[in-house]
Design a protein around this nucleic acid. Structure first.
Lengths: 229, 229
DNA sequence: TCAAAAGTGTTCCCGCTACACCCATGT
DNA sequence: ACATGGGTGTAGCGGGAACACTTTTGA
């Protein structure tokens, strides 16, 4: 008594990537100008269809790499979107992923090829389909994650200043933070390494650079530690 | 220059439901004995294929209703599972949902029809495919949700005792809680109504019954309140 | 010497935790 | 009268929030 799978409807399955970057003091989103109908010329998240021989994670990584040239990027599956007419051409289920990249790392040529552009999170143009809904979910998730996991560092260069890190938290959480309390909090988590180097571009005095110590963090986690900002 | 959607691979899309219930002092999971190949006779989450004209949410609700007879149940989309061979018969993407039901409400006849049975969460039999992974994700999500949203009440009868509520939190969070601190905490949230009635089945003295005041909760939320246990 | 950002400590308060005894009732 | 579960208060501690001045150095 086998069940006949053939009687079931199949659907197109896509992935869409909400790609976040952080530049100076703004959280940014990478969008492409759609090069085909429907909605040609409008702004859109970067997406692609799931292929027979790849998982959703693989598809999302492929899509991200196609646009940025980057591999080994922090990505997380967000949610499955399935409104019947979300894509007017054909029934398509889309699984959204969000990615956190260091905005200086990507390949600018690839961006041009896809007519892609960074937008400040406070200044997003109209997007096609349900992409705004995806973005909102991604933002909420990002807020939660940065509060409970050390994922913020994915958006920064390897070496960063306290100021940059604080600003990052401020734009993600959308609230101002007290400098002293912020430093106290992050330092007592004891997962940063203070370098001897200073960044001299931001002030005459210069500010010390820090690195996230991933090994230390993971060791602490396995001892029951939980990151909490 | 239309893009040709037809060149893309289609896939079967399914939903699987992690159905939680709470009985006396155990968190329980509703499983069915699979009536068809592959893996006929093994235990499985209740699932079904997505149809052309329904969303994932609708499919999950249909599947839940088929098994329990219940409608308007708390459900939440969990995660999309997509390993290539997760279903050995054919490539199937499955989107998992979890549901919280009052275990006394369901229709026992329907359970029989599907050879379904409740299992204590500490005593789950081997499951087919990646259903254990789904369950683990659901449990982690449920823990977080009950800590930050008043979803626990979905698992209880409309009227419940403090004892029941505390026990519920204990089995979900998998830790013992102090009776006094628990009452203090939940009472200061100020979203319960203490009834005049007592439940006389649990002790000679009897214990007061409470109801969750959803309207009050929602009013408070719109004033900036956040539930936190 | 001044402008501009970096760096640094203390106090107060609230919320969480730990903890033990009396109450009501049916048998 | 006793056994069973129901119900209640307080003290101490720790972590988060508020808050302002000094330092460095290039121009």
């Amino acid at each position: 008594m086998d069940y006949n799978y053939n009687q079931e409807d199949k659907a197109l399955v896509a992935v869409d990537c909400i790609i976040f970057g952080f530049d100076e003091d703004d959280l940014k989103l990478l969008l492409i100008k759609r090069g085909f109908e429907p909605e040609m010329g409008k702004w859109s998240l970067m997406g692609g269809f799931l292929k027979k021989n790849e998982t959703l994670d693989e598809a999302a990584n492929r899509v991200l790499q196609t646009l940025t040239g980057l591999d080994e990027v922090y990505m997380e599956q967000l949610y499955g979107f399935s409104k019947i007419d979300r894509d007017p051409v054909e029934r398509t289920i889309s699984v959204a992923y969000y990615a956190l990249i260091n905005i200086n790392d990507h390949n600018p040529k690839l961006l041009d090829q896809h007519s892609a552009q960074w937008f400040s999170i406070g200044d997003i143009p109209p997007l096609i389909f349900d992409h705004h809904e995806m973005l909102n979910k991604a933002l909420r998730r990002l807020r939660r994650r940065t509060s409970t996991n050390p994922v913020g560092f994915e958006l920064l260069p390897k070496k960063f200043t306290m100021r940059q890190l604080q600003k990052l938290y401020e734009v993600i959480l959308d609230e101002e933070l007290d400098k002293r309390n912020f430093q106290k909090k992050i330092k007592q988590l004891d997962v940063l390494v203070k370098l001897k180097e200073k960044d001299m571009t931001s002030s005459r005095k210069g500010s010390f650079l820090y690195e996230f110590d991933k090994e230390k963090y993971e060791k602490k986690v396995s001892d029951g530690f939980t990151f909490k900002m």
